[in-house]
Amino acid sequence: MLEKVYDVFARKDRGDQLVHIGYVDAMDDETAKVHAWTTYDEERWFEMCVVERTAIVPVNRDDGPFAKAQRAADHG
């Protein structure tokens, strides 16, 4: 499968913190939206968004999943 990892963020109510609630594998942004909405449907989220993992820039660790994703992307 030529799928990418997308991290899923959501807030339950207006004014709540946007929190990382999980991730999904998906072909593209559109499918990622569907997968996120149907997979993490245990709450009535006020707002949900997805970010392709390689777009997240790690700040202080180079051994976490975001850094690994960046390295994998850099090495094609």
């Binding site: 499968m1 799928e3 999904v24 594998d25 998906a26 569907v34 997968h35 909405w37 149907t38 997979t39 449907d41």
Partner: peptide
């Protein structure tokens, strides 16, 4: 379905 996520989406649909 071809992936777990797709199966979940199919279930939801």
């Amino acid at each position: 379905a071809p992936s777990i996520e797709t199966g979940i989406a199919t279930s939801s649909m």
